[in-house]
Design a protein around this nucleic acid. Structure first.
Lengths: 244, 244
DNA sequence: TAATCCAACTTGACATGACAGGTTGGCGAA
DNA sequence: TTCGCCAACCTGTCATGTCAAGTTGGATTA
């Protein structure tokens, strides 16, 4: 009666089965799923287990349920969505695995006002900067600057120009007991600076999309700022999600 | 033992109580919540009910749970997040309640390529456009264009220049049985066109942030396109969310 | 024929009980 | 003193059963 721990969780088995039936068209959009009691019979699990699987499908936007009627397949949200919804989340992760990036500089320099403001540092103070460019086959597509308050990085491996062997987050937690808790993401359009234009190989003053993401600990203190600049006319951010 | 339907659901009572204790600092960030069994005793509900409340708190990013240890209060995500995560969702809603907006035009005109492509219409075809400007005390801040395929709006009240008395979505569903199922959102930076510059009162060619949101039905057909242009240097999109 | 009522389904909300497996702190042995 | 073991907690998962409430379609009635 208890739990077959080996081959995965029961609600996951139901979840995966239903998800793939939706994906391969066995249950086309608009169709009603088998009722909960029917699923109970088919998968030989209890109703709460079925309900858990349906809840997750609903959360993924794949189905919707109406009491008294049933659960129905929704249209296909072009995958991705959900987990990778926030571009900024990708950026914070990126600062950890900079595999395909070319490091431009790593060092302590005077931070621009925008950075000191968001990191809550005194104006004119210095901060640690790691900056790199991401490219695809057509050339540079993204200029990423990761800023850290100095007191966070002194005595850590962040200051060395070599790639990090462990993630930044784990590193900060190990050394300073600091954990990122939430992020604030700002999106704006502006003209490229001369430096940016040169690195990204766009005309000076060309419109660029600028993402500024700050990572905060549970007390609201800003621990990290990642600034991404991408050429506005050549790249766009795309995101898909279900409507309710 | 069954259900006091009148005064709200039990898991909601627990949820609200815990949420307000987190909000008012009774449970400060980092603190461990009372264990599930303690909450069962305090609220006089069953454990599944407590678990449901905790699940929702976790989903809101307010707490995090570790098996074997307990549930812990996370830092304050500056509210909003969650529901209002997608700027595009706001835009699709906006097209329904255009209270504070000034209507610039409403009519059928030849659609630009970008619009016909995304709405999957033949190049050069006409489409229905409703266009308005949103302003705040400093002047115009957003130029919004809502496009619809012609066959969707003929015979509906959408073509009249008066504000709609019922929402666009409900209207479409009532007349044509069409339901928006998911949205695709694109964010890019570009230079303002002459028209846009004039309406938004920015210099010609100034960088603008451009959101293009398409609403699709369950079959993937694009039913609606909303294009928002905002002056890049004066306004930014901001979003906050928990990190996991 | 048309309106009404009801039985059969369906989802949602809970209670109770049970076991698995991670975490922690204290106690006793080396 | 230090290491290792173990009992006490804690969350996660799952089964079984109950009741409420919305929906639907067919039988009954006016």
């Amino acid at each position: 009666m208890a739990a077959p721990r080996e081959d995965g969780l029961k609600y996951e088995r139901v979840l995966n089965a239903l998800r793939s039936r939706i994906a391969d068209g066995t249950y086309p959009p608009g169709m009603m799923l088998p009722s909960q009691s029917r699923l109970v019979a088919e998968f030989d699990v209890s109703r709460p287990t079925v309900i858990e699987a349906l809840r997750l499908l609903r959360q993924e936007g794949l189905i919707e349920s109406q009491t008294g009627r049933g659960s129905f397949v929704r249209g296909k949200v072009p995958t991705l969505s959900l987990e990778r919804a926030y571009p900024g989340q990708r950026l914070l992760d990126l600062a950890e695995s900079e595999s395909l990036a070319e490091l431009l500089q790593a060092g302590i320099i005077v931070a621009p006002t925008r950075v000191t403001t968001l990191l809550e540092l005194p104006a004119g103070s210095k901060a640690f900067l790691r900056q790199y460019v991401l490219s695809d086959e057509d050339g540079p597509v993204e200029l990423v600057s990761a800023w850290f308050p100095i007191d966070l990085v002194t005595g850590t491996k962040l200051t060395s120009p070599e790639p990090m062997d462990e993630g930044i987050r784990r590193h900060l937690y190990g050394r300073k007991r600091l954990r990122l808790d939430y992020a604030v993401e700002r999106t704006l359009a502006r003209s490229a600076t001369a430096d940016e234009a040169q690195v990204l190989k766009v005309p000076a003053g060309a419109p660029v999309l600028n993402l500024v993401v700050t990572g905060h600990d549970a007390d609201g203190r800003a621990l990290q700022l990642v600034d991404a600049v991408l050429p506005g006319d050549r790249h766009e951010l795309r995101d898909a999600y279900p409507l309710t």
